[in-house]
Design a protein around this nucleic acid. Structure first.
Lengths: 351, 351
DNA sequence: TTGTAGGCGTTATCAT
DNA sequence: ATGATAACGCCTACAA
């Protein structure tokens, strides 16, 4: 019986092979391991493919080969500009490689992460990128069961699932506080929004640094689960001043908050850095442009994405990683907003 | 001859069917048109699938059905925070639907866009999102040849490929300038970075508004191809003041530039808004938090992403769009930075 | 270096 | 409402 499906009219590999006068498998090899063909056939297949405008059918390829060229990436947020640069690094790293990236948004939910992980596993990705090191036991189990390389990004820690690229949020925060202490600040507030695990570790770094200096005071710590923003930075700062009016420095877990603090200082006519030092986190572009320029902890987000891809693709190709855990470090960018505490000439603000 | 491939050990639909005591195709139907099954079989397949932990093989599905559930999206930049919210809207819109989104980055290159478009076409996406309306002729041809619904986002214009969601950048800029004129500003500068087609149209709006008021002056227009940033905003503003020292207002094509201008005013002790009005574009979160708060043109980026998905999925399901072109409009957010020009009490800036 | 044969897991087609 | 069977287009395994 002759049941025919509607042929999509697409060019198949077999057609290319026929035109080139070779077998299908030879044509197939041309696209995957061209160096395995003789120069003559390679040229013939090439021109045949071009002539017919052949495009491989990825679904068929994936079905037959039992693998895909998809790299999955789980990130907690799309609007957080911190991730934008990571994504940028990822895309640049992918350039010229056969892999494509498939993003999924966990929305800071570990349950969502678990679910997406299972989804990804079913699709047999070539590699996987996950954010952070605080997966649930369930998620961790799924990750361990992955047959593909996995990179955890954004932070470093013990016991990688497979590979890791990041830095120590604890150390970064500790360094920021140490700097403020060295500048003569004593009443250093902590402002935190969206207390995800990495922000939590920054808080730990702050706490330990303050404890080491015997300057701990719970009144100095203001946090919220609300997403970060300049507005919330101003609000938290107002709360801080209400609870600890003698605050002489603020460490913000990210730059949006720091910007909000700067503006709140402007509104209250609190001189920065004379009366109030400000240090942010991430070193977004505007920090250096601010007036006064804002100190921050520079994190290598672009490189993180880029490196994650490098490690992943190398691992996919079967090359064992030189190091399983890559610490990209951080850099304290000291600017005007955290200058030493001392009397300074008053500054006016008009033409 | 018995060549056996390594079975991936995965649960196949056939296994589910066997356990449920039905044919494969019935099991298949359960996942696609469950209402076509009798209640009894439906329940049996359901529990069988759950018991075995069945996950469909998307590659096989795509191959057999000749279609995918992938929606492609071409965007020019990942780091530009304007797109972050669009993406966010897209992801939220996708929630609960079977579709997945595949992003590709054109990097503001029309050639890259062309290439990616061809790539996408070969993958037979269920739908496609492209940025803007200025595709090359080639790209346009590829778009026209798509068999799937297409949505152009970020701006509106005549002659949609298929559907459109956006707003008029020209009108938005025109409205901003009209507002500044109404506040008594006369020497209104234009600051533009990364002059993509939409920014270009904002410039057109500015020009026409100034022309209508007989206030045109080419010295007032400063642009650069460099990517936007607060730093570049300060730089462009400095250039503007050098060329037109009597400038009394600045319209920035985006908020980063506006922020940079504000800081530069701070540095030069130019009173805002007394001596200088500032209006940005996009109304990023920090604009309202700034001191003084910064006026901007609010654009509905989240809704744009969300709406694009709504339209697309409806079209994929075969529902004809109510409107092919959806104008989401904009809203002028008038804040302190563009208050009316008049003498104002000087403001100090210290505690 | 090249080719042969079959299978990858699902859905479309046609039939009951 | 349900089922038998043939594609879907490519790749792996093996052989030459």
């Amino acid at each position: 019986m002759e049941r025919k499906r509607i042929k999509a009219g697409k060019v198949r590999l077999a057609e290319v092979a026929k035109l080139a006068g070779v077998s299908t498998i030879t044509a197939s090899r041309f696209f995957r391991t061209p160096e395995a063909l003789s120069a003559g056939k390679r040229a013939r297949v090439d021109s045949a493919a071009k002539e017919l405008g052949y495009m491989p059918n990825l679904a068929a390829r994936a079905l037959a080969s039992q693998r895909t060229e998809v790299i999955g990436a789980l990130i907690p947020s799309l609007t957080n500009s911190v991730f934008a640069e990571v994504l940028s690094g990822i895309y640049d790293g992918l350039d010229g490689s056969p892999y494509i990236i498939q993003f999924a948004n966990t929305r800071y939910s570990t349950l969502q992460e678990e679910k997406l992980l299972r989804l990804f596993r079913a699709q047999k990705p070539a590699g996987l990128i996950v954010t952070g090191i605080n997966q649930t036991d369930e998620a961790r189990a799924v990750l361990e069961s992955m047959t593909c390389p996995v990179v955890q990004i954004m932070e470093t820690g013990p016991d990688p699932v497979d590979m890791m690229v990041g830095f120590s949020h604890y150390d970064a925060a500790f360094a920021a506080i140490t700097h403020l202490l060295a500048q003569g600040r004593r009443r250093i507030g902590f402002l935190g929004a969206r207390m995800d695990p990495r922000v939590q570790r920054r808080l730990d770094g702050y706490r330990d640094a303050m404890k080491a200096a015997a300057l701990s005071d719970p009144h100095l710590v203001i946090t919220t689960q609300a997403p970060t923003s300049a507005t919330i930075g101003g609000t938290l700062f107002a709360d801080l001043l209400a609870r600890a009016p003698d605050t002489d420095a603020v460490f913000c877990v990210n730059d949006d908050l720091a910007l909000g603090v700067l503006f709140e200082c402007e509104r209250r006519q609190i001189a920065v850095p004379e009366k109030m030092a400000i240090v942010g986190f991430n070193d977004l572009e505007f920090m250096a442009a601010a007036a006064p320029s804002l100190s921050s902890v520079r994190t290598n987000r672009y490189d993180m994405g880029r490196r994650a891809i490098t490690m992943l693709t190398a691992a996919i190709e079967g090359q064992p990683p030189e190091q399983r855990v890559v610490d990209l470090g951080f850099e304290l960018m000291v600017r005007q907003s955290s200058a030493a505490k001392r009397a300074a000439p008053p500054r006016g603000r008009r033409a």
